[in-house]
Design a protein around this nucleic acid. Structure first.
Length: 269
DNA sequence: GGTAATGTTAGACT
DNA sequence: TAGTCTAACATTAC
């Protein structure tokens, strides 16, 4: 699994159903490379005897408010991260657990990240973090007009802008392909060639797909065979017309699309 | 054992 | 200045 917005929405639900409101008695960091801008010792001190008060999501980031004022935990899941809540005394610590919060109720919440691309850090507030990282509006939250205006000021390939976290936050390689398939746009279509109407359609597709996927915790393939995600492989066939999918590179990332349903306009990058 | 997979970012380029 | 592009990072499966 590659945690993009819908997957992180699933982690948020998971946290709300497990560790939320629990009080931390101890914090363990098994690999300090998972920490950003804070030492293991400072993190442990900051978390000791605080409870997880609330949680929210922005893009691919999960923010957890602590009962101590102006103190939020920030989780980013890279491409292999997730959370695991378990009974500390009787359950084995998950493999690749990098940061573990032990609660007074005997349970633990592990930040698990196999490949070390994710990060755990803290911030005084989500807004401070979002500003500092220059993240764009959340891809599920953003309204049509703002979406259109933000994309209209861009050049280059539509997929590059759609997956650029400072334009809109939350869309990665997999959902980028899914959205462009549903919107029937070639991934390399130049943004400058798209009309306002095209961009409104792109917003509609973006919102619809992310909403359905988020409601299902990122398990879009299992909902319907009509989604692109389950077909996204070298020998995969287009779920709409059956044409074998093409593979190209956009932004150094493997991109799948259907040449028939997402034709070149002659104005691709 | 080389390559591909992924998200972010530093640094180069325009 | 600011948007765009490229390469590198980490780890594992094939």
């Amino acid at each position: 699994m590659m945690p993009e917005l819908p997957d992180v929405a699933g982690f948020l639900s998971y946290l709300n159903a497990t560790g939320l409101h629990q009080t931390i008695c101890r914090t363990t960091v098994t690999d300090k490379r998972a920490l950003e801008d804070i030492s293991a010792r400072a993190l442990a001190i900051r978390l000791k005897q605080t409870a997880l008060k609330s949680a929210r999501r922005h893009g691919k980031y999960l923010f957890v408010e602590l009962t101590r004022a102006d103190n939020w935990l920030v989780f980013h899941f890279g491409m292999t991260g997730h959370l695991a809540y378990y009974k500390a005394a009787s359950t084995k610590q998950p493999e690749h657990a990098r940061v573990i919060l032990f609660f007074e109720n005997g349970y633990a919440l592990a930040y698990v990240c196999q490949r070390m691309l994710g990060r755990v850090t803290t911030t005084p507030s989500p807004d401070e973090f979002i500003t500092r990282k220059a993240l764009g509006p959340d891809a599920l939250d953003i309204g049509q007009e703002l979406f259109v205006s933000r994309l209209r000021s861009r050049r280059g390939a539509v997929k590059s802008a759609l997956t650029n976290q400072s334009v809109v936050a939350g869309i990665g390689n997999i959902y980028g392909d899914e959205i462009l398939f549903q919107a029937q746009l070639h991934p390399k279509t130049k943004l400058t060639t798209l009309s306002r109407s095209d961009l409104r359609d792109l917003h509609t597709a973006t919102h619809q797909i992310l909403q359905v996927a988020a409601d299902n915790g990122g398990q879009i393939e299992e909902i319907s065979d009509q989604y692109f995600a389950g077909h996204r492989e070298d020998s995969g066939a287009c779920p709409r017309c059956g044409t074998q999918l093409s593979q190209i590179k956009v932004n150094n990332r493997t991109t799948y699309f259907c040449e028939n349903c997402q034709p070149k306009t002659g104005e691709t990058t």
